[in-house]
Design a protein around this nucleic acid. Sequence first.
DNA 1: ATCATGCTTAGCCATATGGCTAACTAAGCC
DNA 2: GGCTTAGTTAGCCATATGGCTAAGCATGAT
Lengths: 117, 117
Amino acid sequence: MAKHDADLDLLFQALADPTRRAMVERLAQGPTAVSDLARPSGLRLPTVMRHLAVLERAGLVVTAKDGRVRSCAIVPEALAPLTGWLDDRRAEWEHRLDRLEGYVLQLMKDAANGPRS
Amino acid sequence: MAKHDADLDLLFQALADPTRRAMVERLAQGPTAVSDLARPSGLRLPTVMRHLAVLERAGLVVTAKDGRVRSCAIVPEALAPLTGWLDDRRAEWEHRLDRLEGYVLQLMKDAANGPRS
DNA sequence: ATCATGCTTAGCCATATGGCTAACTAAGCC
DNA sequence: GGCTTAGTTAGCCATATGGCTAAGCATGAT
């Protein structure tokens, strides 16, 4: 019943930035060092590091330092809460449409019996 | 190829706030007036209006004024770009895992033939 | 006509976000 | 040792975000 679900906050917010989505797309193809992640963006390293921190805080990415290079990898399961939430919404409004349809059918049946009063 | 996809920016950002997600959840069950939308949140009307504006800008809800009450409704199709993006990511990393598996199988085959040099 | 209701507009305030530079640390290479 | 490379930390700056109050405006009820 997710009183306030902070997970979703972090996930949605992390992906709300095009730079970060680009990073995720890049990482979806395999682990990458921070610099290689930064190059296509044209941004400075500290900036990229902060984006990376956001992704890590959301659980979308893990990083580990090997020597002087830190390599970053995506965590595919991290997307699950998002798809879950979206599926829930879809289920809800489909259910609502079902009820609406039922309501309309009821109206039609009533009409077929002719107006009562 | 979405050079910069602004749609996704707006969608993800709109849903990054728990108040706005709650509104969407409420609206998924049927159209609602602004005040009724505000009541459960405990927030002031102007605040709610701004959240609503964000949702509207993202295309997630539409509103129309009837008399002095504005009623708000969800736009279920608006979620499509999100599920699309998520599906794309999943496809990508599954494809990557496939390649990885292929690579491993190749290694095993090579090993079965014995080290060549 | 008056009043209450429901939204709307304008504007204030604190914090968060996204970019930067500059300076520092740690690893690898000659 | 000394230089280069890859991160890292600290801090500045502009803008965006999320909350509020106060005041305005239009509609529905009396």
